[in-house]
Design a protein around this nucleic acid. Structure first.
Lengths: 176, 176
DNA sequence: CACGGCATGTAACAAGTTACATGATTGG
DNA sequence: CCAATCATGTAACTTGTTACATGCCGTG
């Protein structure tokens, strides 16, 4: 499964505790993969058992001790293997698309309201992503390595949000 | 959950047996919601218990008898309620995006191959969707009701595939 | 000393996936 | 009669979600 490998990537970028990982998943990695802290703790435990990561207790001034996880050579190998493996092209799986399709079987105005609300959400996200773009990658042509990868994934986020906005706007216009 | 309501929509469009539903999910509805026959049978059973659908045995010439499900008034009500309910704006959840982000931690050429393979897949899908478009909706401006809804959802599929192609092509170009 | 934030977890449940089982009927 | 297709299902497992439990520490 993918959460293991998402965590391996996150930990190779920076060793972290469970809660720190959860917070990072709310931010950048969460654009395309989400996970709650409960799930993260469970998977970290399993990965520790499998020897993919090791934990070290880090005492903190004025805060409870945390367990910082780092990737082991075994984990590095598992990540490299997974990265090279082919991946099935995923579909959409959108509850909203389902409602668009079924709108005739309920109150169409209510569905239009749901669409408008989601459209507003996508506008917010797009704004957010574009601000990150401006702030963190003012000169994309100069990027390479990790930075380039992060930029290109964020770029995908921008493209996806723009597409949602186009789609939902067309939908609203078609139902004048 | 959403599979129940996906099935309600499918059954209101046309009463069907479990296997017929599974096949329809491989086709049009599957653009944005997938389900295997095992899952469909399980959920149909639950919905039958809840009084959302009723089954009637339909003998067939030269084939085993099938159970055709139809939506009850209770089910219609449940669908209408669900349609009007707000829906959380979903994120991407893409394993491929994960690999793009983590490419530095493995064999980058292997990741590029994975990307190329997925890109080819998205080209295929886009071609397929565009053929459906041409065949089934040659004159979108004339559509209304169910047909319009189906068209607009397919339109979303086209937009999404185009976006994937743009994104992955940019990615490949950036890693010359 | 109560409250809020940090930190780590458990338990119960819901949803989705994979592998397998069963029986009917037709065509070769 | 054997293989292929249609049709319906069970069982075991993996993932993901929701609700709850516990303890540390500094601030007011």
């Amino acid at each position: 499964m993918a959460l293991e490998h998402a965590l391996l990537i996150a930990l190779r970028e920076r060793p972290s505790s469970g809660l720190e990982l959860a917070r990072r998943f709310e931010r950048s990695i969460g654009f395309f993969w989400t996970a709650t802290h409960q799930q993260i703790y469970r998977v970290l435990g399993r990965m520790d058992g499998d020897g993919w990561v090791t934990a070290s207790e880090v005492p903190q001034a004025g805060r409870p001790t945390k367990k910082v996880y780092a990737v082991t050579p075994n984990g590095e190998q598992a990540l490299a293997t997974w990265l090279a493996a082919p991946v099935a092209t995923a579909g959409l799986r959108s509850e909203l698309a389902l409602k668009l399709r079924g709108a005739s079987f309920g109150d169409r105005d209510a569905v239009l309201d749901v669409v408008r609300s989601n459209l507003a959400d996508h506008h917010l996200r797009l704004d957010h992503y574009e601000q990150l773009m401006k702030r963190d990658y003012p000169d994309p042509a100069a990027l390479s390595g990790l930075d380039l990868d992060h930029y290109l994934v964020l770029r995908g986020g921008v493209l996806m949000e723009q597409t949602w906005i186009t789609w939902l706007t067309e939908y609203l216009e078609a139902h004048t």
